[in-house]
Design a protein around this nucleic acid. Structure first.
Length: 425
RNA sequence: GGAAGGGUGGCCGAGCGGUUGAUGGCGCUGGUCUUGAAAACCAGUUUCCGAGUAAUUGGAACGUGAGUUCGAAUCUCACCCCUUCCGCCA
């Protein structure tokens, strides 16, 4: 959520940011409602002032045992008028708020301007080199299915399309990845959280999934509960309605969670394998920082996520998203993409974003400045550290051998009971 | 799901129709005292939305929402959450 006052005073800047983000929403209605709201606010507050004074007077007279009569009749009329104006005010406030909730965050000035992913910029490539294969590398689902560690037909018999089922060493590998990443980030100074995987609508509102993107969410029929589409939601809501101490910032959290996404509108896209499923595992990183530190912390966040790929020895690149490709709440985003030799393309495994005060304003997370004692919104950041399913797929594709086996990355072997190679059972 | 009790400021805890944004305590901040610290004492210590260049000033908030009233933290209703007990259950 943007600051209404900021919008009022920086219309040009806001419009430019919205345009760069490819957002066609108009501010006219919002500003008009806001003007009307403030006009009525002044009027009703004056009336309330009158009423408060009169009530005070009546109280005094009553205590002295004197008669009151005529002033009460007059106050009845005033109160009625106040009620009318309050109703009107409430209506205006709700409209204003709901418009405000539909406005995305503005891009940071360092974000490349552009409309489509084609305008994204590759910032750097990771250390691990792309491997040369002396055979035609296969796609991960072929590798996995022939090893008997992935079973998509079975998954779809149980749950329909876009689900995966891991078996034996596959299930073990998935679990190894989760533990390895958690351990790595805990060592890096993140506090581990195991949050609920279902959250209220209010929490979804806080991080920005609602009201605009309800189509992407699984909602429980009889309760106001949603399955989380990312660990970002429970983690960012951790400090809802709280005031932090300046010296406690930044706060760093890591959590493993499954993620649930309807993937509406992606019919026919990536229908095979582990790339775009309704349920996948992810290790998520979230930071709460001081505003002046947030862009520096974003760089740290990205390199913390990169470390995972470096240690797993998977080739990757860091991409800065252009304005048009940024998510709703993000001011700046870096994606990490891994090389998939079987598919012969890059695939996103992590998205690290600075949300500035956009989410903090929605869920009301502030911090107290030490010198002045004033309150300010914190900045929130999050990034995958990293997506497990796609990493699993990348390992199968990058580490496959001509015989069809898969070499387990060294760093994971202790998590696999020393196993070095996955072959057919 | 049923029953009972409860939700008040950073925390504890009063208040149960009329200067109560809210006694008191703890904590925190500043000061006095002290070589320094502690103790003691004094003072300060919620947030949001407006008006105004500003000093300043108005309004709102006691789980949430509605209602009664000239006036509600205090009364009524609905909902949410917490605690305990019962039922069910991994």
């Amino acid at each position: 959520m943007l600051d209404l006052k900021f919008i009022r005073e920086n219309i040009k800047k806001v419009n430019k940011g919205l345009k760069n983000k490819g957002e066609k929403i108009s501010l006219d209605e919002l500003l008009q409602l806001d003007g009307e709201r403030r006009k009525i606010l002044v009027e009703v507050e004056n009336l309330k002032y009158r009423r408060n004074k009169a009530s005070e007077e009546i109280g005094k007279l009553k205590r002295e045992g004197k008669e009151i009569k005529e002033s009460i009749g007059e106050m009845q009329k005033v109160s009625e008028r106040i009620r009318e104006l309050d109703d009107k005010l409430k209506e205006l406030q709700e409209k204003t708020k709901s418009l405000l909730l539909m406005i995305p965050n503005l891009p940071h000035e360092s974000v490349p301007v552009g409309k489509t992913p084609k305008n994204n910029k590759v910032i750097r490539e990771g250390k691990p080199q792309k491997k040369k294969f002396n055979f035609e590398p296969r796609e991960h689902w072929e590798v996995g299915e022939s090893l008997g560690i992935l079973d998509f037909p079975l998954a779809s018999r149980i749950s329909g399309t876009r689900f995966a089922l891991l078996k034996g060493k596959g299930a073990r590998l998935e679990r190894a990845l989760i533990n390895f990443m958690l351990d790595l980030h805990i060592k890096g100074g993140y506090k581990e959280i195991l949050p609920p995987f279902m959250v209220t609508g209010e929490s979804m509102m806080g991080t920005g999934q609602l009201p605009k993107f309800s189509i992407e969410l699984y909602k429980c029929k009889d309760d106001d509960l949603y399955l989380i589409p990312t660990g970002e939601v429970p983690l960012t809501n951790l400090h809802k309605n709280q005031i932090q101490k300046e010296k406690d910032l930044p706060l760093n959290y890591v959590a493993y969670t499954p993620c649930f996404r309807r993937e509406a509108g992606s019919y026919g896209k990536d229908t095979k394998g582990l790339i775009r499923n309704h349920q996948f595992n992810k290790v998520e990183l979230v930071k709460f920082t001081k505003p002046e530190d947030s862009y520096g912390e974003l760089e740290t966040l990205v390199s913390d996520a990169e470390k995972v790929l470096e240690l797993l020895e998977i080739p990757y690149q860091v991409v800065a998203l252009c304005t048009g490709d940024l998510g709703f709440g993000a001011a700046k985003t870096y994606d990490l993409e891994v090389w998939m030799p079987g598919e012969n393309r890059w695939r996103e495994v992590s998205s690290c974003s600075n949300f500035t005060d956009f989410q903090a304003r929605r869920i009301n997370i502030k911090y107290k400045k030490e010198g002045t004692g004033t309150l300010e919104y914190v900045h929130t950041l999050n990034g995958s550290g990293i997506a497990i399913g796609r990493t699993f797929a990348a390992i199968l594709e990058n580490n496959q051998t001509e015989k069809g086996t898969v070499v387990i990355p060294k760093i994971l072997q202790p998590y696999m009971n020393g196993l070095e190679i996955i072959d057919r059972d």
